[in-house]
Design a protein around this nucleic acid. Structure first.
Lengths: 333, 333
DNA sequence: TTGCGAAATGATAACGTTGTCATTCCGTTA
DNA sequence: TAACGGAATGACAACGTTATCATTTCGCAA
């Protein structure tokens, strides 16, 4: 009985006006007389009319949607998505998401191809690991593309946390307080975050002419931090440890304690992400916090800003913040 | 110089074939001769043709997209989104996401209205708090709608973790091991998860004729658990504590220890979400884990299954799993 | 060669909007 | 009353696909 789709034409007929008038009621209501507007509104109501997205965007030549390719979903991703979604909402865009996941090797080109068949005016790639075609990738010329990644890209705009800067900041915090060296516990090897944090740590030490000690390999979880802590506890010159995340930092601290060492009196520790307080009461861990939400907002704004000039290119770094607690001892005191 | 959009017509002209043949090359390649196919493919390549989503879906009458309204983004959300995204990918759908967030009161009706103007064949509402129009809401008749919520809905399909069952399971685990009572530490008051977990705890006790003690109010974070733990440590009859999440459970355990009590020898503890092991080395906490990823998969499958019959209605509960560690003592031994 | 049937291709009409331009309406002024 | 002008409305084409149905092409048997 019900016609499947109610079109503007159906509404027009029901209201006794022309197709174009219905269109006007929707898009420029002020240009139509109030009495007419009411007729049309009641007709729409009665028929259950909803504007057809496909027809509208076909005519308009744009969708009002920004594509987001997730690739890999990790911890901070919720906040980032939250930021992207909020910023999109604010600017009147919806998000079109794909994941392009799976065991097979994934490439930017594949993601771009898939994306460009979907309703998107621009796109954001959330890239947290390396991909084969990173450097050779070229985005569609008419589709603004922003990549969330710590690496620089030859042609696309990129947005990233300043992971390297955050690590440097943490190291300098140690060094400025009289520590002569800083040990490092890394995250999973393939993670770009971990790599960047390590790079920043190295750079900060070398800038002061300090030879960086061999980093300890972790896997983000507390147990790997604990293992690293047991090793570090035996190194007499170890007064400062930078762990690539809070969970491992906590593992390190527990190991040190189990070995009879005190934090911060014997060894100082800094982590990343500032999330330990959620899990540990009265947490003392000083930590470098990245503003993932802000990151998402910036990425989305960058896309929207570039919609008109997709070939423009920029690089945005969102700085981290050092959240001070009491896990670092000032040796100069 | 470049024409903004390359259409199938342009390709057809370039390849010296008809429009329809180009269409066939894309949609039913076997029905066109190989030599023709090659001509068309080269023309597409040369011109940089990409099929126009709007035109395609206008003609087909469907989008190949499932809408996801996030409302509120919380912890387990990443895994759920991950599940939704993977299941969508597998079935050839993309996701259209909006957040419908913000300080203002949000309603299902608003979300549905916004959604139905977007490219969606069906939709998923991720509802973790109560909304005013929950019971009165009616989904568009032609758009399959699935709500992720622990509450039953009069007309829409719903999918949920079995939070109540999980809590009951944990309680019975205590009771079956000789505990005479179970104390409860809740999460934030407005959270439906917390409410359901509390309900399950109550039900399990009452089923055995035990009067549930006054629940302790927490806020999901460790500090609130710690505060609750200090209170519980003074109750001589408290041998078992169920905390609404792992972070608070950890807070409880730390407080008990600080008060000279041992877990599990003096007091047994169970948490929710099984995530403490990430942060605490050698974690002993037994915990009820919900399969958020599975939840997302089910929700998506439910939508897709109902695309043809949007008015069908079902209720899916995804059971939790009790991950046993050593934080519960068997009093019968 | 011719004729035939199947395979390959093409002409044309939709799908439901918005933009362009023409037309009608209505109140105001001469 | 007639003429005017701006506001309100309408007719029609276009956006880029896919579906229907007609037409052409081709290989093969007669």
């Amino acid at each position: 009985m019900d016609k499947k789709n109610v079109s503007m034409n159906d509404v027009a007929v029901a209201a006794g006006v022309s197709l174009k008038t219905v269109s006007r009621v929707i898009n420029e209501p002020d240009s139509v007389r109030e009495s007419t507007r009411d007729k049309v509104h009641s007709a729409m109501e009665a028929l259950g009319f909803r504007t057809n997205f496909a027809a509208r965007s076909l005519k308009l030549g744009r969708y009002g949607c920004i594509g987001v390719a997730l690739f890999h979903l990790s911890g901070g991703a919720v906040d980032m998505i939250d930021g992207i979604a909020d910023a999109a909402e604010e600017r009147g865009f919806a998000l079109t998401m794909i994941k392009k996941c799976g065991g097979e090797k994934m490439t930017l080109a594949d993601a771009a191809r898939r994306m460009s068949q979907l309703p998107v005016d621009g796109m954001i790639f959330n890239l947290r690991q390396m991909v084969d075609d990173f450097d050779s990738f070229e985005a569609p010329k008419d589709l603004k593309t922003v990549i969330i990644t710590p690496m620089e890209h030859p042609t696309c705009s990129t947005v990233s946390d300043d992971q390297e800067g955050g690590a440097r900041m943490a190291c300098e915090y140690f060094l400025n307080r009289g520590h002569k060296n800083v040990y490092f516990v890394s995250g999973k090897e393939e993670s770009l975050s971990s790599q960047c944090r390590m790079k920043g740590w190295r750079a900060a030490l070398e800038a002061r002419g300090i030879e960086p000690p061999e980093p300890l390999q972790g896997d983000w979880n507390a147990d790997s931090g604990y293992a690293a802590g047991l090793v570090l506890a035996d190194k007499p010159d170890c007064t400062a440890v930078l762990a690539a995340n809070d969970c491992m930092a906590n593992g390190v601290m527990m190991a040190l304690r189990d070995k009879g060492l005190s934090v911060p009196d014997d060894v100082s520790v800094i982590g990343f992400d500032d999330e330990l307080y959620k899990t540990i009461p009265n947490s003392i861990l000083t930590s470098v916090k990245f503003r993932h939400r802000e990151l998402g907002i910036r990425a989305l704004n960058e896309v929207v800003a570039g919609l008109e000039s997709p070939s423009s290119r920029s690089r945005t770094l969102v700085s981290g913040v050092l959240v001070e607690r009491s896990s670092v001892k000032d040796l100069r005191a």
